[in-house]
């Protein structure tokens, strides 16, 4: 098993305040998502480390959808994945962002 590392950056998001958050577990078919505040000039940077190779295009699509849903900026998202399906990834990302924002209130 080798790991594939993927990086995405989305510009033009709304700077979003919050407290560093981690949700999910790096278990089979699951993933952990960490959201941290970061001064990125309004950008959202996402780093994915996944055990499943060759799914770059799928990740790209899932992340693009995520950014379209939330348009969050000035945050860094780090993902450790153990073969989660796209639907699970989307739900975890939503959960992570909600928790991040909720804690920041």
């Amino acid at each position: 098993m080798t790991i594939e590392n993927l990086k995405y950056r989305f510009d033009g998001g709304k700077p979003t305040q919050g407290v560093t958050t981690i949700v999910g577990v790096l278990g089979s078919g699951n993933l952990e998502v960490m959201v941290e505040p970061a001064a990125l000039g309004g950008a959202c940077e996402i780093e994915v480390s996944t055990a499943a190779q060759g799914f770059g295009k799928t990740w790209q699509a899932v992340m693009k959808d995520f950014f379209a849903r939330h348009r969050v900026g000035d945050i860094r998202i780090s993902v450790n994945d153990a073969g989660a399906t796209p639907a699970i990834v989307s739900l975890r990302l939503d959960q992570a962002i909600e928790t991040y924002k909720g804690k920041g209130k």
Partner: peptide, 11 residues
């Protein structure tokens, strides 16, 4: 080293 995914908090 084994190229296995590692949890941020090592579990």
């Amino acid at each position: 080293t084994l190229e296995q995914p590692a949890a941020f908090d090592d579990g």
